[in-house]
Amino acid sequence: METIKHRIDTRLIHAGEPKTRIHGAVNLPIFQSSTFEYTGQSSYDDLKYIRMNNTPNHVVLHGKLAALENAEAALVTSSGMAAISTTLMALFSPGDHILVQNCLYGGTQDFITSDLAPLGFEFDFIDAADPKDWDAKRKSNTRGLYVETITNPLLQVGDLKGLAEFAAAHGLIAMIDNTFATPVNFRPPEWGYDISLHSCTKYLNGHSDIVAGAVIGKADLLDKINHKLVHLGGSLDPHACFLLHRGMKTLAVRMRHQNCSALAIAEFLADHAAVERVNYPGLADHPGHDRARQLLEGFGGMISFELKGGLSATERFMQRATIPIVAPSLGGVETLVTRPAVTSHAGMSPAQRQEAGIGDALIRLSVGLEDTNDLTEDLDNALMG
Rank of each mutant, 00 (worst) to 15 (best):
I30F: 00
E334H: 00
L244S: 07
P324Y: 00
K249A: 07
V333Q: 09
A90V: 10
D130G: 00
E297S: 12
D96Q: 04
Q156P: 00
Q156F: 02
T343Q: 09
S34L: 05
T35Q: 13
Q109N: 08
L65Q: 10
L65V: 12
Y44M: 04
Q32A: 14
F121D: 03
S79E: 07
D237P: 02
I150G: 01
I84E: 12
V26D: 15
V215P: 03
L236G: 10
T35F: 14
K139H: 12
M89F: 02
K19D: 13
N27P: 00
Q294H: 05
G16K: 08
S366A: 08
G300Q: 11
F305H: 02
A174S: 15
R7I: 12
G120I: 06
L116R: 13
W191R: 08
V278E: 03
H198S: 04
C260I: 04
T10I: 14
P183A: 00
I225P: 03
S79T: 14
Q41T: 08
R21M: 11
P118G: 03
N279W: 15
T142W: 10
Y105E: 14
N27G: 01
A252Y: 13
L236M: 14
Y280N: 05
A252K: 02
S33T: 15
E355I: 05
D290G: 00
P238K: 04
R320Y: 06
D290R: 01
H245C: 07
A25N: 11
Q258Y: 05
I112Y: 08
H198Y: 15
T322L: 06
G288Q: 06
A74F: 14
V147D: 01
G107T: 03
N27Y: 13
K308C: 04
A74H: 10
A212W: 07
A266N: 11
L88R: 04
T343E: 07
H207E: 14
L75D: 07
A168E: 14
P328Q: 02
I112F: 08
L160R: 01
A219I: 07
D46M: 10
M255F: 02
G347Y: 04
I84S: 01
A356E: 06
N381V: 08
P189F: 14
